[in-house]
């Protein structure tokens, strides 16, 4: 849950910065229009919406400081203990699960982003047989219920006789992440003016130089967005993971299992840390963008 929210937040930040960049300093100023709903209705509605959105996050954050003993449901006083000793309880089970999730997320993201980007470029730029059917097929993993996907994969692994471990989880995650990467990067490739690559070729750039100096830098925002989405999806995934993980623990799996006996505050600590990390990313992106805009404004 929280993973998706973070991803959305980070992606939102990225997309927005992209738009601003594209429109440059000449970007139109948005004219503000007064809405005739009364001056109080909109603010109240906005506040309610934010409260609804933010309560679970605030709850998670606050209860990561709860001096709980076993279950983390009622408030028992403030402490930093859980943050400081997060890896020392239950033999570090929370941290191990968290580390597994990070490794799986990173590896699956790198593979899915690389393959997905190549597929996206091929789908937009080249005409070949079965191009449109491939485009359609790539949508299928997104449209199929995760339960079906997870169970199907598990059956295949069983049939082939592959033992379930980190590798099978990474394979499963790569599979469903690729679709999302392709869709995200494809939009970016499609909006890329082919004349730019032609100009690169005209200016003596070999195919690889044109790719690395013109195409790739222009695709970077899309690729980054795809990678973040991919990582968030992988980090967050419970259903497919649960079918294909065997005895390997991941963060969502750990929380699911421990939920039956009261989630330990350590889980809140890690969830909060992830949230704060995402928040810092967004803030850094915004600040650096503002700084760059200022620098450019000074130049002109």
């Amino acid at each position: 849950m929280s993973g998706e929210v973070q991803a959305a937040a980070v992606l939102g930040g990225l997309q927005e910065s992209e738009q601003l960049e594209d429109s440059g300093h000449r970007g139109g100023r948005v004219r503000r229009q007064r809405i005739g709903l009364g001056d109080w209705l909109l603010p109240v509605y906005t506040v309610l919406a934010f409260v609804f959105l933010l309560i679970p996050i605030v709850y998670t954050l606050v209860f990561s400081f709860n001096d709980s003993i076993k279950s983390n449901i009622s408030w028992r006083g403030f402490t930093f203990d859980k943050w400081l000793n997060v890896c020392n309880v239950e033999g570090g089970a929370v941290c191990e699960a968290f580390a597994n999730s990070i490794v799986i997320g990173l590896v699956a993201t790198v593979i899915a982003t690389t393959l997905g980007t190549m597929i996206a470029i091929a789908l937009v730029r080249y005409r070949f047989r079965a191009r449109s059917s491939i485009s359609l097929l790539l949508f299928l993993p997104m449209a199929t219920p995760e339960v079906v996907l997870g169970a199907g994969l598990a059956a295949q692994f069983l049939a082939v006789g592959v033992p379930k471990d980190m590798t099978t989880i990474i394979l499963a995650h790569t599979m469903f992440c690729i679709s999302f990467v392709v869709v995200t990067v494809k939009a970016r490739v499609a909006s890329l003016d082919p004349a730019l690559e032609e100009a690169g070729r005209d200016l003596y750039g070999s195919p690889s130089q044109v790719f690395w100096r013109v195409t790739f830098p222009l695709l970077v925002p899309g690729i980054l967005a795809a990678a973040l989405l991919s990582f968030a999806l992988s980090f967050d995934d419970f259903i497919i993971t649960n079918f294909n993980s065997g005895s390997v623990s991941t963060f969502p799996k750990y929380i699911y299992i421990s939920a039956s006996r009261g989630i330990p505050a350590e889980a809140n600590v890690i969830a909060s840390a992830v949230f704060l990390f995402a928040l810092v990313l967004v803030i850094v992106a915004q600040v650096s963008r503002a700084a760059r805009a200022k620098r450019l404004a000074k130049l002109s």
Binding site: D22, D193, A195, L196, E198, A199, G200, R201, D202, L203, Y204, G205, S206, V210, V214, P217, L218
Partner: peptide
């Protein structure tokens, strides 16, 4: 011969400046 090996340069109708 490929475009990058021809001793020719073009001023494009759409400019095609590299935005990055």
């Amino acid at each position: 011969t490929k475009a990058h090996q021809r001793p020719v340069n073009t001023v494009f109708q759409s400019y095609a400046l590299f935005p990055h």
